[in-house]
Design a protein around this nucleic acid. Structure first.
Lengths: 228, 228
DNA sequence: GGGTAAGCCTACTGGTGAGTAGGTAAGGCG
DNA sequence: CGCCTTACCTACTCACCAGTAGGCTTACCC
């Protein structure tokens, strides 16, 4: 599961700073995700990273700085993964579907990162939660914009910006929570989990905007552009 | 927000054990919710409770025992609140609606308790998470049974037990997550948050079982029992 | 009133973990 | 080759916190 490089013994090989920093960050995400911020010790992180504690302090600063850096890195990675996954020119439901797939794909390929990001960051107080709230806000805006566009699309005079934002918050929340649940029940593949949420949610949103039932793109004829 | 009794100075007044235990539990939930399990110190809990540390150990055992007891107490309280809130003889959608209202009502009236229950318990590992998973499992079964019944009700040959359980998990997850979100954005009343989730979710489920759109009971004539 | 048990305390120990002081090897460059 | 910068280390300090030893005081009951 968490396959960092083996524990060192003796002096570590000389490596350029950028490489070491990457190793340290990977180790930190791993340890923070397993133990939580407080229970994780700088000693353990340095051990997993294969270096000594002073190196850790020299490169990444205090424990809190290190944690904040982890959060920022994982948040950025995730937002990038989603941005790249979304099919921006597709109809709204397909945009949402591709976004969900990208999201669950990221979480599945990056469980430790997600754990740090969501569970740990939100249960610590202060600036960490703020960092998270920021990313969450961006995600919500994204979904809200999608919803507004989608009701324009269907010519329905519903869904003011406020309403859309609330619904987006609920959807983002549902996604986060389902991802958490998935971490504890990892039997199913990402696509199935994503499809479940899509089904649950879009059929609701579908009623809001058009009263329709949603099917995955591959079963539709009028949108068979990309399939893969 | 967390209005425990003021900090003592000197010797505390003599009180029967049961009362002290209650005070200690309240203090513990308060402190755990604010700081998290690890960052919370027994010193601070005893101070908030208005007694000294050895009393704490004499009555509630170790820090871990205390935490587990908190989780159990809050979990029990919550399940009771929901059980009492659900209108068991009502149609499925109204059952769900009343359950959601009871849930968000409990969270709103008991924020610290919810925080301990959900955020803290799930981010600690081991027996705590297990305790939580147990309660969650009961909640999911409850919702799943409701869904199965609801599709019987609509004479739709859909929603096998497995499918129902997945959907129930997603719904419970969405509820938990929306509750978390609400803690961070406490501007709205419980009813509004509950209604939002009901709307989002039932209109999805409604399609699953009957293709219908949901309205709150007060707008319907055939089920205008309570309003408040 | 006197015994005694329940309620309460101050004041410690031991362990753990954040952060640092001060020093050693290794590669590059004149 | 010798110098110096960068990478790296061992071995500490200091604070904080879980858990405890041992003793004081109040209420109740005979």
């Amino acid at each position: 599961m968490h396959a960092e490089q083996p524990v060192r013994s003796g002096r570590a090989k000389r490596l350029p700073r950028a490489v070491r920093e990457r190793q340290i960050m990977d180790a930190a995400v791993d340890v923070f995700s397993r133990l939580g911020f407080h229970a994780a010790s700088m000693d353990e992180i340095s051990e997993v990273a294969g270096i000594s504690k002073p190196m850790l302090y020299a490169y990444l600063g205090s424990k809190e700085e290190l944690f904040a850096t982890c959060i920022r890195r994982e948040a950025t990675r995730m937002m990038e993964a989603i941005s790249e996954g979304v099919e921006a020119e597709a109809p709204p439901d397909v945009q949402l579907w591709s976004g969900l797939r990208a999201f669950f794909g990221f979480v599945g390929a990056n469980r430790a990162g997600w754990q740090v990001l969501h569970r740990q960051a939100s249960s610590q107080g202060g600036p960490f939660a703020a960092e998270l709230a920021d990313m969450r806000g961006r995600a919500i805006s994204l979904v809200a914009a999608l919803l507004v566009h989608s009701s324009d699309f269907a010519n329905v005079p519903r869904a003011g910006d406020k309403e859309a934002e609330s619904l987006a918050a609920a959807l983002v929340g549902a996604g986060e929570s389902l991802a958490d649940w998935w971490l504890d029940n990892p039997a199913e593949p990402a696509g199935v989990v994503a499809a479940r949420l899509m089904n649950l949610v879009w059929m609701g949103f579908g009623d809001l905007v058009a009263g329709e039932v949603w099917h995955p793109p591959s079963r539709r004829t009028e949108y068979a552009a990309e399939d893969a």
